[in-house]
Design a protein around this nucleic acid. Structure first.
Lengths: 223, 223, 223, 223
DNA sequence: GATGAATGAGGCTTCATTCAT
DNA sequence: TATGAATGAAGCCTCATTCAT
């Protein structure tokens, strides 16, 4: 599963890799702004200037961290879509959710903080003050994400445009919140016992909920 | 509807009130850490030192902002629960959601940024690094929230403890994400046209989705 | 001669004033880029952040320093011009140089580093990379300086436009270089003995040289 | 005209040469401190460490740049002086200026940024904080320059020591300022049209001015 | 109550330089 | 010779906070 070129593995002896790892952990636990360069380089045991040398700036580091998750995530979604599409005309909702879940699990298996950081970043992107981030994501991943979304939309054809828009975001919110706080929630569930997050378990619980939410009857009188 | 003591109205001529209002707007648009005291006092057109004078510290301000939303929110929930409980044995899920929606609308009608900030704070509270905030919320509002939660749990009796825990958070995620980003989402939906957020509309769309999610069949094999 | 409002005297007990004074001394001795905020605040015995508080940034400080010299200089030139113009039709070259000399002496008498720093700034303004500085000077002082220049041009009427342009800059170069390095030159002249610069002496020597340079015969064959 | 040893031509394929060329351009446009090693090596398209490898340090590079101009300049002045001295007893002022002009033109023809950088360096040497630079120039070129200066002094015999000192620096200021800012002034004169600097033109205009300045009557009463 | 000034800590970034290869 | 990586020092600036008035 770990073929070279598949997903970049971070060599612990490599400065850039250690920075990425430290950053992921801290971003995931504290947020982006709350995490300082000193914390990152301290945890990574590298020189403070190394971040700027390798990533240009803190923002550059954040984006590198994002790309290292988003790229394989998109790739896996694409792969999954191809499989799902072949033969059948269009994939159904549950199949689409399975594709997404597969991609998420894939990324998570390579890096236990990656999803959490990624979701935190997506959350931030909804802040009105983060237009640069919005532009970055749209430029880099907008087109690829649209493809997935189209199938999603097709399945929910009975819904009008606005209802679809809102339901999509309600359920996106579920995903972003749950995966952002994956570790906290797992710890809460197991009453403080530290344990590796079993993402597959979580997704197995979440998919029926999302599926049902998407298919919920539309309330009368909502114009 | 605006009886004294009900929900504090912020006197625009009052320094503390103007700070609160400015802070809510900025926290809502930028986040807590991203918002500086200078921005707040600049927007409020008050002296920089006034925040510390009136609220002790930035954290104190954040908590004051939170309390001004959370207190009336809890009060309204309690009121709603009383009404719902009277006569009938236990309120059902949809009734409980209606209670919550009513409380949210009530708070929103008094202050268009309050909910957004509140939800952002709840989101933060799930960060492992924010134990102080967690403690604060638990101390102040934990007990009151438990009561609401009990009814919620009662309605979902068929679910085992863990399934309930996760579903609760999936759907809490929906609410937190949606209301945090209320203004952004409204703007997106209306394609850039600035318009007041119609919270009731949003909730009317959200409740059926949450309700359906809560009632979704449990996937076999999830132990 | 020191009427209030005439030229701002820097109160030694005033933080901003002490910063200005320290900055002038260091800028004069080392140049702008070579002088650090720590050196300035160290010499002024104020907090490092005080510069940013009072002047916004290092560039802001540099411009404040410049304005404190340029404003009274322009004022004095204007006053001198009025006196020179009254009665006679147009002032001659030597009269114009006397006006300038008077203004320079006036500024120098209030602050022994002011001219040196100012001239260093003017020198910098000729760097292609300093377009912001050029714009700043043009906006703030361009118009006022043009007036003086017109009289200068009028006196040198026989010269064609280009010859005038170059001679103006040759002689401006003399002034900028001499006054930039006023203290070094004075020290050199007096063989290392530290002594207050006698600007009037220097200008008394310079004016005949400049005057003669301006009136020099034009070399044949220069088209 | 390009005999080996005469003036080093910089081989574009040679790392050290490319660094020198890039440095000259950038020093000329921005100043020494303002120009970073990264800019230099970036423009030269060589490795960042190459400067330290070839020149030891940034200061070493600056001095190398200076020497590559100063050495041929001094050589040419010496040559010119020999020609001027042969036959006649002592060369006159205008002849001395022609010698200097010839040497300057010679250097400029080999490298269009060399003079500008050199003059900028001479300017810096008058800063009290640049005693190292002063020592360097004195050691390396002091003696050779004194010879030229003696003839200069001889021609101005009627002037007392101090008057000579000051006039020398007034006019040195003209030269340093004009040639430092050669490109900016040329661009200004031609109203923004980019054009190669015609140094001979500039010098042809400057020499009569300097000559006249040197010969100006001494103002009475200057002791 | 309210304020303008001041401050110490710490933010990110950039610098010239060095080192291992 | 040449280089990509790494580094310690220092750069400017911003932060929340405090204090005297």
């Amino acid at each position: 599963m770990d073929q070279p070129g598949d997903l970049p593995m971070y060599d612990t002896s490599d400065t850039a890799g250690r920075i990425i790892q430290a950053a992921e952990k801290l971003f995931s636990e504290q947020g982006f702004k709350e995490t300082t360069m000193r914390q990152i380089t301290g945890l990574a045991e590298v020189n403070l200037a190394a971040v700027n040398y390798h990533f240009g700036s803190k923002v550059g580091l954040i984006r590198s961290v994002a790309e290292r998750s988003l790229s394989p995530l998109c790739e896996q979604i694409d792969k999954g879509l191809e499989t799902a599409v072949s033969g059948k005309a269009t994939p159904g909702l549950d199949q689409l959710l399975q594709v997404m879940a597969g991609a998420l699990v894939y990324v998570h298996n390579h890096n236990r903080h990656a999803l959490s950081v990624l979701m935190r970043l997506l959350d931030q992107a909804y802040l009105p003050s983060q237009q640069d981030l919005q532009a970055f994501l749209r430029e880099r991943y907008g087109a690829r994400f649209q493809r997935y979304l189209q199938y999603f939309r097709a399945d929910a054809a009975p819904l009008d445009e606005r209802e679809f828009f809102w339901r999509l975001h309600f359920l996106l919110g579920s995903v972003i919140f749950t995966l952002s706080n994956m570790h906290t929630l797992s710890a809460l569930e197991q009453e403080g016992q530290a344990a590796e997050v079993e993402l597959e378990q979580i997704l197995a619980r979440m998919i029926p909920v999302i599926s049902a939410g998407m298919k919920a009857p539309v309330r009368n009188g909502t114009h």
